[in-house]
């Protein structure tokens, strides 16, 4: 479904991604973990067209989408739930969902809205509320629901559980699990490595702009060096 090859991106003068490659197959849930500043968000931003890579290629269903504009990439079937959600706070929940479906025909848009509401009943109750007044958990559901409105072939999520209390974060993970069962292809960036690995099929671990480890979830979760990639080697100061 999604193939990324030797992608290099500069962000300002940082070389934020160095020769990154990954792939996501149809129906797969793949997660991307690693410490802050490893380049995960940069990678998702580059794939979805917000940043232009210096070199490398991104293919969606064998179509080269490198350096396309974000709206064109969305139209070809790749949606992103951005970091910090970025829902439109001045718009109502209803309008947020409609904007999410701006690329689909209007009749289909209304059907999709019903589908999303059945997936997130709380949004149905608050359709007329301005999204800025939603709680963190509701806002996250709206961000995901809004992205689903474009019927993406593959959905990218950037830290969907960020800033949520553990109970609400759990709701997000259950939701990811449910999307997986619906056959949705997903690429998820997440802090909570253990929890996301329980849900995902495969994972990639990034550090300093590189993918340093990759493998099946079961394999990754049992690796001892995982914590080290987060916080650096600690052995130099062992007493």
């Amino acid at each position: 479904m999604l193939e990324v090859e030797s992608l290099t991106t500069r962000y300002g003068s940082i070389s934020a991604l160095r020769d990154v490659g990954l792939s996501v197959g149809a129906g797969e849930v793949v997660c991307l973990i690693g410490p802050n500043g490893a380049g995960k968000t940069t990678l998702l931003s580059t794939i979805s067209g917000l940043l232009n890579p210096v070199s490398g290629s991104i293919r969606l269903e064998n179509e080269e989408i490198t350096s396309w504009s974000p709206d064109r990439i969305l139209r070809s079937g790749l949606a992103l739930v951005p970091e910090h959600r970025r829902i439109f706070g001045d718009l109502t929940v209803d309008e947020n969902l409609l904007v999410g479906g701006v690329t689909v025909a209007s009749a289909r848009r209304l059907e999709l809205k019903e589908e999303v509401i059945s997936l997130f009943p709380v949004l149905g109750e608050k359709l007329a509320t301005e999204a800025g007044y939603l709680s963190g958990g509701e806002a996250q559901q709206l961000a995901i629901g809004r992205a689903l409105m474009s019927e993406p072939k593959i959905l990218l999520m950037d830290e969907p559980a960020l800033g949520l209390a553990p109970v609400l974060a759990e709701v997000v993970f259950e939701l990811i699990d449910q999307l997986r069962q619906n056959g949705q292809t997903l690429l998820v960036v997440e802090q909570n490595a253990r929890r996301i690995l329980e849900v995902a099929d495969r994972g990639y671990v990034m550090r300093s702009g590189n993918i340093v480890i990759s493998g099946d979830s079961d394999e990754l979760i049992s690796r001892d060096d995982l914590f080290e990639t987060y916080i650096g080697k600690t052995d130099s100061n062992h007493d």
Partner: peptide, 14 residues
Amino acid sequence: RAAAEDFDAARLMG
């Protein structure tokens, strides 16, 4: 209105 609030997010929506 969405673009006025967050242009990039609106582009991400298509």
